[in-house]
Amino acid sequence: MTSSDPTVQPVPASVVEQVDAADVTLSNPKRAVIALGSNLGNRLETLQGAVDALEDTPGLRVKAVSPVYETEPWGVAPGSQPSYFNAVVLVKTTLPPASLLERGHAIEEAFKRVRAEHWGARTLDVDIVSYQDVISDDPALTLPHPRAHERAFVLVPWHDVEPTAELPGRGAVAGLLARLGSAGVEPRQDLELRLPE
């Protein structure tokens, strides 16, 4: 389903703007989009823990959190792993991209993320989808995320929380999603991630 489904309500832009206007704690912050995923352990608790850990990061404020979606694992045989819970978080930060990546890895490690195999199951995945309008081919951190435009499990929740979003170098998220479709990305309306206070 896409966010055009009347049962899935996107976060109103006015809510995001209100939070932005109220935040005077960061000087000249940059906007970043972070995708979260978990398919081991208590998936919802892990995603909430990641949101809270991001908010606890000096120089970073969580601005919006998407609805939770359940999806099949990417790049592996169907049924070979548990399904994922996915969400997208919008943040404002004074951290440079490399430091934001480092913080993401630290949060993954705090939740016992193991990098034993490519496309392996994981307790937590923290991916920087985009950072302001930065386009970079740096192998340590390619921006925007090189496969974000192919991943409905990133685009659907991002579109829900920011319907007018643009993926740098790729265009409007709504247009990317219209071409890609959203098969297999199922809204979990019984679950909710809290925006840190």
Rank of each mutant, 00 (worst) to 15 (best):
G75H: 03
A22F: 00
P6K: 03
S182T: 09
T94V: 15
G184H: 06
A106L: 08
S83L: 14
K112D: 11
P12F: 07
A35P: 09
N86C: 13
S3C: 11
A21E: 11
V76M: 13
L60Q: 08
S66L: 04
L36E: 05
E166Y: 11
L36F: 00
L100G: 01
I34T: 03
I107F: 05
R115P: 14
S182P: 02
P163T: 02
L47F: 04
Q18V: 00
E102I: 00
G59T: 09
V68M: 06
V89Q: 05
D137Y: 01
P10F: 05
R103A: 04
G59D: 05
V19G: 12
E72I: 00
I128L: 14
V185G: 15
T164D: 14
D56S: 13
D133N: 10
D56K: 10
T71R: 10
A116T: 07
P78V: 04
R31S: 13
A106M: 07
I135P: 01
T123P: 10
H105T: 00
G175L: 09
R151S: 07
R43I: 08
R194H: 14
L101R: 01
G169I: 06
P96Y: 01
P67C: 04
E17A: 14
V65N: 08
P168L: 04
P12L: 06
D138S: 10
I135W: 05
H105C: 04
R170K: 13
T2K: 04
D190Q: 09
S14G: 05
V134W: 03
S182C: 00
S130I: 00
E150N: 07
F153M: 14
N39H: 05
R43C: 15
P187H: 11
Y84I: 01
N86E: 06
A148R: 02
V126K: 02
Y69R: 03
Q189T: 09
A172S: 11
R188A: 11
T142C: 02
E166A: 10
G79R: 13
L44A: 10
N86Y: 10
V114P: 12
E70M: 07
I107G: 06
L101G: 06
V154D: 07
